[in-house]
Each structure stands twice: as C-alpha cells, then as structure tokens.
Design a protein around this nucleic acid. Structure first.
Lengths: 206, 206
DNA sequence: ACAAAAGTGTTCCTGTTACACCCATGT
DNA sequence: ACATGGGTGTAACAGGAACACTTTTGT
C-alpha cells in the first residue's frame, strides 16, 4: 500500500480515463473500489507522485496527465489529496492485474469510496468543459485517426450527438488537425482519411 | 501516528485581489515580498488553512475564496503549496499592518519570490477566464452597486474597454442582477440606479 | 447654461445550426 | 448490386459588435 512511513501528509490520486465504446475510468481494489493513490515521498514532485500512483497500480506510463483539484485528506491521515486525471487511448492500456479494471462513471456511487467518487465526477465535468476549448479529445486516440473516430470522442465526452458536417467544418477550422496522405481501409465502404494532431502546443495545463 | 514530528508538509497560500482603480493583490513581507501563507495544521481543512493564512497576515475574514492550483513545495520544505485566490471590495480591507500592502500584478517579477509569482499570474488568468461565465465580478463590489461600477470591474479584469449598451444588455440578460428601487447621487449628473446580486447561487467552486 | 455621467435601440455582421445526397469500397 | 460508413454545401437563425443621442443632476 504505502511504503514510506514518514507522516503521509500529501497523497496523489489519479483518475485514468479511456474510451472503450463508453467513457470509463480505472478502478483498483477488490471489494470497495479505489483510485490509484500513493503517499508522496520526500522530495518527490506532485506530478511525479501521480505518475507513480498510476505506474504502481497498473504499470502504465507516459499518459496525458493534468491536475484536477486538491481535496482535504479526511480519513486516511492525509492532509491533502492532490487529484489528477489522466487520458489515454485504450490500446495503450493492457490491464493485466488482478483487481484492476474499467468502470463506468455513472456507477461511481456503488463502486468507489466516497472521497474518490467526487474525484471521478469532477474529472468528468472538467473533461466535458475542456473539450470545447482545449485539444484533449486527441488524447483518447492513436497518433493517427479518422474524423469519425474524433467525432465519436466528442460525442461520448460531451454526451450529445453531433452533426457530421458541422463537426468536420469546426475541426478543420480549429488548426489542430493535420491531414495525412494515408487512408484507412476498414470495411466494405469508402476508406477514411487519416489525420494527426499538429505537433505544436501539447495541450497546456490550466 | 501524530507525534511531535513537525514536517510542515502542506502549505496554503492566498493571493487576495481587490480593485483600487487597477487590479491589485496583497503583498506581505518587507524586502522580498510574499503572499500570505501558513503551514497546514493537523486536522485543519485546506480552505480553513487558506483563511487562516489571510487572517493571520492581515486580519481579514469572510472573503470570497476559491482554490487555484497546487504547486510543488520546492524549497521551504513543504511537499505541496495549495494556492487559493480571494476577492473582495477594497472598502472591506482596511490594511493597517507594517509590511502589508497592495501591489500591481504587472510588477510581480520584481516584487515576489519566484514560486509566488506564478500564483499571482495564474490567478489573473483564471480571473479573466472565469469572468465570462461565472459571477465573480460582483465579489469586487459592495452589496449594492451601479452598472457603471460593474462595467468597470469587467473592463479592468478583462483588460479591455466595453461598449456600454452591449454590456448593460448582457448583464440584464444574465439573471444575476436584481434592480433595487434606490439610486445613488454621486456628482453633478443624473443619479445611477443601484443593483444587487441575486441571492441564489453563491458562485460555485470549480 | 453647461458640464458630466446615466441611460437607451437598431443595424450589421459573423458564427452556429439544421439539413440530404453522392462516393468509394468489400462482399 | 447492394450495404456500409466516408465525405461534401447551402440557407436560416441567433448572438455579438458597432454606433449617437437624450436624460438628469450639481454648480
């Protein structure tokens, strides 16, 4: 659980989200679910602590990570819990550990301890809000993706269906997209053009 | 568990803003300025710690307070610094302590220690952003205020002049305003109608 | 009477929404 | 040939921006 024994004052917790048909988050712990969380070590940075929480619980590294909010420690003896949210495409997340798995944010109340529920809820709200003005949707996709995939991300996080033509116009105008020369042949229909995220500006924190 | 081992792990810092012609923040400390900051006590909540920081440094109580961001402790031995920003009308802030005073955010680099500079900067950005969608401007005004005063707050925080008619239309449409029956006679010109903030919804945290 | 801030509508423009059909492929 | 998702333009609408003059007071 927690290795260092020196007054576990600051904890870092991470709500890792991915999209597998629906928006889901990573839950650990057998009966009463929890989010990945560790006590911060002496001299360890906050973001480093959050990454370590994820890595310890799941083996996952190198995901998009952003600070969400800092909560009172409450029980567990912590003075504060600094919560982060993480985003990654599900292909990068081969979860192969007992007691670790994906869960639906809508059922957070039956799955998680109370202090972790609010983290997931707030993260969902932040995600939906930030979708409008920051290029976070791309974090759920592979490096190259189709516009239909991108639209699907927007629809799932924003909880509403979108008009295909308006969506494409908006994306093309947003200057985050770069059209590649390649297409993806997926089924018995016209192939889809592949796009990638413009490499400047890696979705600044805020 | 809670022995006398001090380790001031979590600090809370507060950037208190007010408007006195310009937007200003509260600086403490003689030579190298600082923000009000305290080490969190055992069992003390984060917001309580932030309020105590303000109260200790200035005697000020009961201001609007919202969490900004949590930073690495860096030097000073803290594991984390949980930063808040506070807003209040300057009439409520009779500062009468040596070394405590108002400063201009633009000169933050010459006034504050580096780790406190970024707090003020981020708070200014947050303020400007939040102005658009949250009723924070009212926090700078007395309970009753004129539309010209309100517009002035918007212009100062948003760093742009606004059209009077468009502004008034927008405010009236926003449903935060309540028109009172009173007016304020201020100078040799037509008196200004007084408004107040609708008492529901006290500017939810985010 | 005049100076000084309060108050008030309309037009234009821009960006958002609603909407239906052809295209390229695999079977 | 047909089923499947990929791809495209236009017209209506709403919200924001630009803009100038009258009102009420104090001196």
């Amino acid at each position: 659980m927690n290795d260092t024994n020196v007054t576990p004052a600051v904890h870092t917790a991470v709500a890792l989200f991915t999209i597998r048909e629906r928006l889901q988050f990573l839950r650990v712990g057998a009966e009463q679910g929890r989010l990945p969380m560790v006590a911060l070590r002496q001299g360890e940075g906050l973001e480093a602590g959050a990454r370590r929480a994820l890595e310890t619980a799941t083996g996952i590294e190198d995901v998009f990570l952003e600070q969400l909010y800092t909560f009172d420690g409450g029980r567990a003896g912590a003075q504060a819990i600094v919560a982060y949210y993480a985003l990654a495409p599900c292909e990068r997340l081969p979860i192969r550990r007992p007691g670790v798995g994906w869960a639906d944010p809508a059922q957070v109340a039956t799955l998680l301890a109370v202090d972790h529920q609010i983290i997931v809820q707030r993260a969902c709200e932040r995600l939906a809000g930030k979708l409008e003005y920051a290029p976070i949707a791309y974090q759920f996709l592979a490096e190259r993706f189709t516009l239909s995939e991108l639209q699907s991300v927007y629809e799932i996080i924003g909880r509403q269906t979108l008009d295909k033509r308006n969506f494409r116009r908006r994306m093309h105008a947003s200057a985050h997209l770069v059209e590649t020369r390649d297409v993806r042949r997926n089924g018995c229909h016209r192939p889809a053009r592949l796009y990638r995220l413009r490499d400047t500006e890696p979705a600044t924190a805020g």
